[in-house]
Amino acid sequence: MFFIQFLKSSIGKKWIMACSGFCLILFLCSHAAGNATLFNSIPLFQAYADQLHSHPLIISVLSKALSLVFVIHTTTGVLLFLQNRKARSTGYKVQKRAVKYSQASRTMIFSGLFILLYVLAHTYAVSFGDHATIGLTISYLFSSPLVVLFYITSFIVLAIHLSHGFWSMLQTFGVNHPRYNKLIRNLTYIVPIFFLLIFSAISLLFIF
């Protein structure tokens, strides 16, 4: 079938990465917006969480869909990594890149796996607990500087991942035009830094 064929093609796989990545960015936006309630107060955040959990649709469908997207993004990423290693099975003696500042694109698989680790830890600590007391769970968690450090490290890794991922997603979608490339280049800085700042600020709220 044409759809399966598309997905199996090299460009199809790029699209899977880009589309799932796009969904994950949207999720990050909503997550950031929800968590921003913490800037106001813990009870407001608790109220937001209660609201969220009062919608069966969100719990039963959206959260599962999100997990699915996450799994797709991760497995396709790992699959691509393995496939691509085979396509260039013999490396060069001198490993050198012609592109300056290619650290982010070079390390996508590693930053990705680190984020996976973070997500597992984060869901274990937060989502599987009692959502009725999530406000307390969070303030307890973030009272430990070690946890905050782990979180902030993860956000930095996420920002690095996004600094390539966001631009890469647009490129895959075919958005590359001299008229907009400057804007896109700026966005590749703004988007990751935005998420880094907002999430880090939240985790730091509880220390100070």
């Binding site: 790029k14 592109v99 290619s102 694109s105 390539h164 490129q171 979608f173 075919g174």
Partner: peptide, 29 residues
């Protein structure tokens, strides 16, 4: 048996004719 593109831009950087990856974006579309 060519690999998949992960938008690393190395191709564009070494291309002796300076061909832009804009062409890859166009192909994607």
């Amino acid at each position: 048996g060519f690999g998949n593109c992960t938008n690393e831009r190395e191709c564009e950087a070494v291309c002796p004719k300076g061909i832009s990856i804009r062409n890859i974006a166009r192909m994607n579309r």
